[in-house]
Design a protein around this nucleic acid. Structure first.
Lengths: 252, 252
DNA sequence: TTCACTAATATTATCGATTTTTTATTGACA
DNA sequence: TGTCAATAAAAAATCGATAATATTAGTGAA
């Protein structure tokens, strides 16, 4: 119930972040940055139980580092709302809730629509190329079937596609907000739709959105994007409601 | 040029934050939280030169603490985009730019309008009371004249007023985004309009916005709020443009 | 049995010192 | 005089240890 969103961007130190979730921690940087990337990915990819205690000693052992960089990485995640800090009581993985998810979906739909509209309006050739390319790569992976929705490569390309769509939006801030919301959205999807069997043709949806966008039909593109987001959300809600309150996830 | 916004909220450890900027670090908590509050306030209140290097040794001396809590506090600010970290090169105060400010203003206007609309729609008695009370307190301070715009108490009450306006919006996330944007906005105002002589009746503007909101005239309220934000922004832009590129600020 | 209190244990928060990397300085060489 | 390289100084990142705080276990009284 309490998440903060941070919005960073392309900051020098933490090379990964939103853009490249799959890609493991970029070496070379500081230990803090590496840990930040790894922890962030673990939580956002649904590999950590919401609300779970983050024992420092355990993490220290697991990653083979000292407390300092560990606490620094956690501090960043706290500011992002992905981790919660309680005075004198350490850190815990941010909890999940129906209300929070509903909020995320609502805002994401609104903001990403704004960004998409803007992008369609000012997008040039490079933008069009980017969208087409991203869609192509995504479709390729989907056709392979070796990777169903939720697989690492699919996740990455799916993110890239949505990124490409709004790529021509000229508000860095808005794009950051969108990225944050998408991250939060995806966390829920991965947590609650882990082994989910597709009941619809997601690929077709992406195709339609891209088509509308490239045809500069903002109205239609925004509508389709909204439906796209809502559909997945609906499925998450169903699972979410089946599980009384707690967050029944996987590993710890 | 690159800011991240964080959005936190009412997190247990850092009691202050957006809500109570003036109020110094709440004791009792951890050292990290205290430092976070102090540094955040210093930067946001315009007391630190944008882009300035944050020498750890110096800060350590100034606050009489060790590196650990200091670095943790800075890490949080990094995630918020208020401080920039460069790998192996330490921390610097986030820079300012015309483009960034323009982005902040644009998004703030949009998002705060959304929040205000929502608030007007669902606000109940308590909300109305809150708005009236906040406006009253603000007017009182303004009439005192002992404190012109920019004074500590004025800053606080001004923030409270804007907060009260959108108080009935039921999207915590949206409110956090708004708070973040308001913080960034205010940073520019304080940096560039430090000793600014009012050329307009800000008090009247607040009154009008409140009136429209309480009359449930969302359209009018949103319009007035937008103009209110734009007017101050215009003044900031003027100063901003007079100063070639650099940020000519005060201390530090 | 349950509550309150104290002792023991575990965990976190902070510190001081060490290692690593960057930045500044100096001097050789063209 | 200017450039480059080697070195010295400064700064940042990381570590291991200590102090502070919370949690658990245990004991005795109601």
């Amino acid at each position: 119930m309490e998440t903060s969103l941070s919005l960073e961007r392309t900051e020098p130190e933490a090379p990964a972040k939103s853009g490249m979730q799959g890609d493991e921690a970029a070496a070379g940087g500081t230990l803090t940055a590496t840990l930040y990337d790894r922890l962030r990915a673990e939580i956002l990819e649904g590999r950590m139980t919401p609300g779970a205690k983050l024992r420092l000693e355990e993490l220290r052992g697991r990653y083979g580092v000292s407390l300092s960089p560990l606490r620094e990485a956690l501090s960043r995640l706290v500011a992002e709302g992905i981790v919660v800090a309680e005075s004198q009581r350490g850190f815990t993985v941010a909890p999940v809730s129906r209300a929070m998810f509903a909020d995320v979906i609502r805002l994401r739909t609104t903001l990403e629509s704004m960004a998409l509209r803007d992008s369609i309006e000012r997008g040039g050739d490079e933008w069009e190329v980017g969208v087409v390319a991203a869609l192509h790569r995504l479709k390729k992976v989907e056709s392979l079937r070796s990777a169903e929705e939720g697989s690492q490569p699919w996740e990455h390309l799916h993110r890239e596609f949505h990124l490409a769509l709004v790529g021509a939006c000229d508000s860095p801030l808005l794009l950051q907000f969108c990225a944050t919301l998408r991250d939060l959205n995806d966390r829920y999807r991965r947590l609650f739709l882990a082994n989910y069997v597709l009941d619809r043709n997601v690929a077709t949806e992406h195709q339609s959105i891209a088509d509308a966008a490239l045809a500069r039909d903002a109205e239609r593109a925004v509508t389709l994007l909204g439906e796209h987001i809502q559909r997945t959300a609906r499925n998450v809600f169903m699972v979410l409601e089946k599980q009384a309150a707690g967050a029944v996830s996987h590993s710890a």
